[in-house]
Design a protein around this nucleic acid. Structure first.
Lengths: 198, 198
DNA sequence: TTTTGTTGATTGACGAGTCAATAAACATCA
DNA sequence: TGATGTTTATTGACTCGTCAATCAACAAAA
């Protein structure tokens, strides 16, 4: 039954399965065999396409980051004004998709992994860099005409706040509340920028 | 050579060793045998005293939280005024001890664990509850005489900010900078409360 | 002689990664 | 067109290692 051109299909299936299994287990303690079974193939095939477990994890992380990046870009595209762009980034960060079990599991374990696996750290740096750049860009017109430093420093603050709020919302018992998360970051922004604008 | 009263000594050694090994591995992927070896005893003895691996982890987490709690309490004891107490809590949260490799490892993996192990979640709730209570208490005199809600909401914000800043500082390449972390939270507080007082 | 401390050896299970083998699609050329 | 060779897809079975947990046995203190 070997149809040709299976590679991308199988890889995609394995990425999906990896994310799903991480969410189910809550940790990276997931066997290749579990992943392969969920993706509907043998472990040997999984190894054939990815070469090893770690590379499956990394591909899964890359996928999560890609989705997130697309979400932010989409929200940014229709946002109006600097404040609108700021809000768009925050909203995208707390979208329902980011609070799905599997995605939360991916993020938490991603942080753990980033401490020891260089490629994971690289991915994390890319994510943080992009976020910082987006935030700085949106903030620049909003901070006083004073020092140029301020937008960057504020972006760091907002970035940390986003991570912190996400962490807490993701860990708390019960369903996560994206709107509350947005409100929390928004309050921070209002305090720092004054409440002019929408 | 069986001396009596070994139990507390061995347990303490195992807790230390567990924390250390988690830091070394960067994850919970640590074998009982590694822990036991570092603690200078056989795996069988480790099992004898703790019954299983998970219980060693939990004891280790409990220990980390105990140290942190003591640090906060100590800092609070000598703090002056509401603003001083606030700062004391923040400083304790970013003390050098909390940025040691092992402790960072413990926290990161603790968050992962809290999603699936009830006892870990309980511990996390205790930590967050205590932090919130401490912050609320220190904030109450500082927020306007208006609604009583505000101190609690602000405490949540500060709590999230602390977690977020800690996460980023812990994950970034290079040595973590506790002072910068404190400054970041302080800026948030200043924005929310106005900059009166020390 | 009962309790406490201690370990070497063992068990039973599981998991990552490899390999040899099979089968279908495709390519080439006589 | 048919024969032959090549690449891609796919798996079952296996290797080699590891690990948590248990047990039987020994030592010393009370």
């Amino acid at each position: 039954m070997p149809k040709l051109g299976m590679e991308p299909i199988r890889k995609a299936a394995l990425v999906q399965a990896t994310i799903h299994e991480i969410g189910r287990a809550g940790s990276l303690d997931v066997t290749v065999s579990q992943i392969a079974r969920r993706a509907g193939m043998s472990t040997a095939l999984a190894h054939h396409y990815f070469g090893g477990k770690e590379q499956m994890f990394l591909a899964a992380m890359r996928h999560v980051l890609t989705l997130y990046g697309a979400e932010v870009r989409g929200a940014l595209a229709t946002a109006e004004g600097p404040r609108g762009r700021l809000l768009a980034i925050v909203r995208a960060s707390f979208s329902p998709g980011n609070f799905r079990r599997e995605v939360v599991g991916a993020w938490l374990n991603f942080w753990v992994l980033a401490r020891t696996v260089p490629e994971a750290r690289r991915l994390l740096d890319v994510y943080q860099g992009r976020l910082r750049s987006n935030l700085t860009h949106a903030l620049r017109p909003l901070v006083g005409t004073g020092a140029g430093e301020r937008a960057g420093a504020l972006a760091d603050g907002v970035g940390a706040m986003i991570d912190g709020v996400y962490l807490r919302e993701a860990l708390k018992a019960g369903a996560p509340d994206g709107a509350a998360a947005v409100a929390m970051v928004r309050a921070y922004l209002d305090a720092e920028l004054g409440e002019s604008g929408a």
